[in-house]
């Protein structure tokens, strides 16, 4: 069971109150991009064993999208943060580093 704290309403939500939104921090490539970029955007996803960043929606509550940093191996949650950021904020990255030294996700460490 996964329990994430919604950063907007502060409620500790059970997994069944949330809707999973897939990988976080994707860059959208649309009209004008190359075929390679569009393919990456549409199909290519991280599949890590360990630290992962995801989008979730508090669908049975306040209805807001947010981000979560968690481990796919242990289900440990490192933190949740606002949807209005392009990369994980420093405090979240520090929280991950404290638990998993030397982690890497895409080009983030």
């Amino acid at each position: 069971m996964l329990i994430l704290t919604c950063p907007y309403c502060g409620v500790a939500c059970d997994e069944t109150e949330l809707s999973a939104g897939g990988e976080a921090h994707l860059t959208r490539h649309g009209p004008g991009s190359s075929d390679g970029e569009f393919e990456d955007y549409l199909f290519m996803r991280e599949n890590p064993r360990g630290v992962h960043f995801e989008r979730w929606r508090h669908v049975y509550g306040c209805g807001k999208w947010f981000h979560a940093a968690r481990s796919t191996a242990t289900l440990e949650v490192f933190g949740t943060y606002s949807a209005q950021v392009l990369i994980p904020p420093d405090d979240i990255r520090a929280a991950v580093s404290a638990k998993v030294p030397g982690w890497q996700w895409r080009d983030l460490t």
Binding site: C9, V11, A12, T16, E17, G61
Partner: peptide
């Protein structure tokens, strides 16, 4: 409901939207 029903987590005067 999966929401925590303990008085410490859902006191009188607080609203919990859940399922």
């Amino acid at each position: 409901t999966p929401a925590d029903m303990r008085p410490s987590h859902l006191p009188v005067g607080e609203v919990r939207r859940t399922r």
